[in-house]
Design a protein around this nucleic acid. Sequence first.
DNA 1: ATTATTTACGCAAACGATGCCAAAAACAAA
DNA 2: TTTGTTTTTGGCATCGTTTGCGTAAATAAT
Lengths: 331, 331
Amino acid sequence: MSKITLKEIGKALNLSVSTVSRALRDSYEIGEKTKERVLEYAKSVHYRPNPIAQSLKVNKSHSICVIIPEIANNFFSEVINGIDYAAYERGYNVFIFQTHESYEREVSSIHLGMDRRVDGFIMSLSGKTDHYDHLDLLKSEEIPIVYFDRVPPANNINKVVVNNFEGAYNGTKQLINKGKKKIAHITTPLILSITKERLEGYKSCLRDHDIEVDEALIKFCSFDPQEAIDIVNKLVYEDQIDALFLGSDRLALNALNAVKKLGASMQNKIEIVGFTNMKYVDLLSPVICAIYQPALEIGHAAANLLIDYIEARRKPEPKQIVLKTFMKTND
Amino acid sequence: MSKITLKEIGKALNLSVSTVSRALRDSYEIGEKTKERVLEYAKSVHYRPNPIAQSLKVNKSHSICVIIPEIANNFFSEVINGIDYAAYERGYNVFIFQTHESYEREVSSIHLGMDRRVDGFIMSLSGKTDHYDHLDLLKSEEIPIVYFDRVPPANNINKVVVNNFEGAYNGTKQLINKGKKKIAHITTPLILSITKERLEGYKSCLRDHDIEVDEALIKFCSFDPQEAIDIVNKLVYEDQIDALFLGSDRLALNALNAVKKLGASMQNKIEIVGFTNMKYVDLLSPVICAIYQPALEIGHAAANLLIDYIEARRKPEPKQIVLKTFMKTND
DNA sequence: ATTATTTACGCAAACGATGCCAAAAACAAA
DNA sequence: TTTGTTTTTGGCATCGTTTGCGTAAATAAT
């Protein structure tokens, strides 16, 4: 059934394999008449080229490899959705590998992708990645790569990011506008690009409003729910904070949960703003003002940027795309 | 660098390609000494077999294809996580295709998978799939396939599902126990297996508690938020319901949103139970009692079942795995 | 009619790995 | 030494494509 090959088409039509191949690829050196014959017959038997054989021959796979920390995360799954959307439009397959925030898995994912001869990579770095030589491998092999969200510290790379500084600045400002003074910041490991940028936005905003930056109120937190609870408790009871600025998606939910546990009366005293990509934030009970990333657009832009780059005859200069975050208030 | 082939190893060691190949696969017909030489050299040059060439030769790809309605959905992304977990353990790659609830994309995804010579499929049917001949293709090609969640109506197939009937029954009972009498059910298209099973659980529970089943209170709803709003409004204001039983993840959030829009006083009158896989349901404001599916386990079980089947010499009888739902109350 | 040019196609060698078959090397038996 | 066995190894075809090169046949130029 699905095992029609060029050879069989050739046999049926009394043509050589190469002629059939060229006819299907619409080569100029094949006569119109035979082209038609081949095309028609191929369609009638539902011929589908074997991408594996093609890959082997041309050392390309018409597929891209996405490496992300975690699929089961609103932000990343939306990004994948965007990537998938663009890839589908342009006829590319998508491989997805998760690092689960592990450097080793990041490295091995890169190798798996290269083994599969993917045409390019889209990646967001793991929370443990603090050196970047494994990426040099890709560079030296001249494999196109687009980073998003958590990007390595270099500027001659393709990347799609959001204005994290501005998003954090505006989020913090929102809290200040509500009269809050002791604003804590719970965030991701400092090695991540997003952490630094958001932290700077937060600090910068405080300074601009004559609030001194208190390093004790800046907490780097893992994705362990209990750790979030401990940190929130300390901030609330010892440091007497009146607002929380949360640095990332999973963190935000953990922290919200921790705040909820403080009880209703405490909850109301603490204003919360945070980066998250949860749908329906307005259904959340400790009210949170969400700073959104346009995840779908990020994925779409990243995939298109990558494929453009893959298909370009002369490789263009690396491009940096910066999209806007947006806030979704709850009141 | 990464382009070491068997041929090059052979040249370096003065051995033929086939000897090298066999040495690496630890064949019994190769002398211990040469085996060691080959192994050592291969490691020293970081030899990695080219999976594409292997695939072409043996017509297998050591990869599985996952076809689901939507990645950006808590339930499915968790399932993928489980699949990925098992596949990684057992050395399989994973292709993911989304149908976006389209029958055509379901068909084309199957073809894409087959083109790539995947060793097997894991799928959950689209919301539009009401005939199943495209699946026969897989069957006739003898490609292993495991269904989960939304499965076709046949019993000689591999599948991993939950006890939807029981979950729905218990959910409905929960509402009855709170004294509710007019319990509406908003759910997915009736062609889906899950819809029917849950609907039966709901009806059965009502009957067992001497509440007559009112077909007007059973609403099949798309994933359009506005439709959910309209339906909820009608149910509340015209039909005067006092409880809602929601049939699926995305639906639940839409309906919750609709209920929220009714205003605080109305909200409190309506008790809500629903299938969902959102983390932190207890943070949701119209309170909802969640019926959870063990998504990670489903994925893990499905992948292991599939890979067991793929690797079995004698193909075993199709297996049906039924896992338990569990409730997470909010009060 | 002869030569030059174009057009339309076939042959064969890759791509990297596997596996059948035969052959060389090693050893045992005569 | 010769023959027979066993152990190790090499040669070659193959998977389904793509592509450079060669060459008939068809057309144009002389």
